[in-house]
């Protein structure tokens, strides 16, 4: 049924957030890191991608509307533009809130012919979720991804910073146990690593002092 019939009066359309209404969550360190990144490029717009990585870290691994709005506000871009950039790239978590760990299984060519789908089907049935879904305990999100370009270790998976491979069912059992036991949120950790490699050593230190 068309939304026209479902949505009530025209006055109920949600409005774009006003600047004064935004809750800004970037920590001081994040603001400093973004400021350092501004000096790397001749135009501020280039900070959108690194800015989204910072936001993904600051917002617990999920880029919801508020996260996107904050990036837009800080870089003086329109909300729609930042949402457009974030949803283009597969590593920004905009569609689904990830669990504490995002298990990305490569099923592309070399991995494919080396049994990647076996691993994928095993994980799906073990965790009870499908592509883009998170386990009920919030621990693991599962995603099928395209080539991770580490084909000599096929089949390869990525969890946070780390590539693992070649994996098989037993390997996955061990890895999942390790991840469950680890206190780290690897989704947030990966975002942090990615921010850290883009600011220089001295800039990073100054921001986190």
């Amino acid at each position: 049924m068309s939304e026209l019939l479902q949505l009530g009066s025209v006055n109920q359309r949600p409005q774009p957030p006003k600047r004064e209404e935004l809750t800004l969550r970037f920590s001081d360190a994040a603001v400093k890191e973004l400021d350092a990144l501004r000096t790397h490029y001749p135009e501020e717009k280039a900070c959108v991608l690194p800015g989204l990585w910072i936001a993904q870290r600051e917002y617990g691994g999920f880029l919801d509307g508020e996260a996107l709005a904050e990036v837009a506000y800080r870089l003086d871009r329109s909300y729609a533009e930042v949402e457009g950039v974030a949803t283009f790239y597969s590593m920004y978590n905009t569609a689904h809130r990830p669990g504490r760990h995002k298990i990305e299984v490569c099923t592309c060519l070399s991995c494919h012919v080396n049994g990647a789908y076996r691993v994928w089907d095993y994980l799906k049935s073990k965790l009870g979720v499908g592509h883009g879904e998170t386990t009920a305990d919030g621990e693991f999100m599962l995603e099928e991804v395209e080539c991770l370009d580490a084909c000599d270790r096929a089949p390869v998976i990525q969890v946070g910073d780390q590539y693992y491979g070649p994996v098989d069912d037993a390997y996955m059992d061990r890895l999942l146990d390790e991840l469950r036991a680890s206190p780290v949120n690897t989704v947030v950790q990966m975002a942090d690593s990615i921010v850290a490699v883009q600011v220089t050593g001295p800039e990073r230190e100054a921001a986190h002092r």
Binding site: A46, V85, Y89, S90, V145, E146, Q198
Partner: peptide
């Protein structure tokens, strides 16, 4: 400068767009 998951960004002009903060 890190990308965020897009094979097309390996194309030189798309890479430039991405570097400049666009899709």
């Amino acid at each position: 400068h890190l990308g965020a998951g897009s094979y097309e960004c390996g194309e030189e002009s798309a890479l430039m767009s991405s570097l400049m903060g666009e899709r």
